[in-house]
Design a binder for these strands. Sequence first.
DNA 1: ACCTGAACACCGTTCAAGT
DNA 2: ACCTGAACACCGTTCAAGT
Lengths: 199, 199
Amino acid sequence: MQSRPYHHGDLRAALLVRAEETLREKGPGALSLRELARDLGVSHAAPSRHFKDKQALLDALALAGFDRLGAGLTAACGAAGDSFAEQLGALARGYVGFATANVVLLDLMYAVKHDPAASEALIAAGQRWAELAIGLIAEGQRRGEVREGPLELIGTPVFATLHGYASLAVGGMLPPEAVATGLDDVITYMLRGCAPDRP
Amino acid sequence: MQSRPYHHGDLRAALLVRAEETLREKGPGALSLRELARDLGVSHAAPSRHFKDKQALLDALALAGFDRLGAGLTAACGAAGDSFAEQLGALARGYVGFATANVVLLDLMYAVKHDPAASEALIAAGQRWAELAIGLIAEGQRRGEVREGPLELIGTPVFATLHGYASLAVGGMLPPEAVATGLDDVITYMLRGCAPDRP
DNA sequence: ACCTGAACACCGTTCAAGT
DNA sequence: ACCTGAACACCGTTCAAGT
């Protein structure tokens, strides 16, 4: 009876995996719960046991995306040198790298939500990685490489620059061949914005 | 025979108007061509005469959004003082203002496209307003208020910061009450990033 | 030219019923 | 607990036909 070859209470995980594949291959909006069920060899009503909604599945996907992003950024910063410039560079390259490697997923992660209840968890997830950037800035201040002041006063603009560059790049608003080289310029611009007032 | 009260060859315009209303009231994805047609009192097949696709309607909406954004920003900068700081401030407030007043539309304007042919016009429209920022920087350089260098080298980071801040704010990733006050900090951060190297 | 009506092939969601 | 099968109310798109 190996007729159910794949999911033994793991239909939930299988749905998430397959959903992300479909998203990557065929774009958003081409994702259908019924097709997902077909691909996995279950009835079209089966997914509703694991996700009450199509939106619930998308939210779970986005949440997993934030987890992977956080892990990737932590690793990238850990592998970089101690100076603020090196740390910020690693963060920036990590973020833009994740964005270009997970175009549709990033869109999903920051998608405008209309159900405020469901989006709370996503906002929290988003702020978790923002705290990574905040910590980096605090350390930079301790080293005297970052200007004084409240952490978000400098963290928010940096966060905005990074996220903005990533979404412009991913959306095709920047000449694609210039994305990698332009990032270096963005990094030095951010460093100027963070630098202490006077030498 | 006033039974067709509204559209006389203007079904196209009426569709766009109603679509944007629906988008604003009920969010994206709640937009259905059939419901649009119902609202306007035409058959469900009528819209296809004016937009070959649902996507085509969305693209037209996004394009109109860029036009309004460009007009608004031009006006805002025209009404501001001549100094680079005042011009950049006006641009920033104008952009974030448009974003918060047109949340779903902004999402649409920068949505990741998969049909590269259709998105070309949108990218061009996006770059048109970017050129406004570029011109502003060129003038700032002439005045000695902006560091020397290729225009996009300084323009792209500014563009990224602005767009990133707007999308974070709109997506609820920033505490909503801090959006307006935080913008001032972002503006001074951008000015630092643009400032000439040494006094 | 512009629109209608019917038809086709899909959806998401729900719910009794099975195991 | 987990899944099935049928049913419901909707979609987008196409296409002959009307005016």
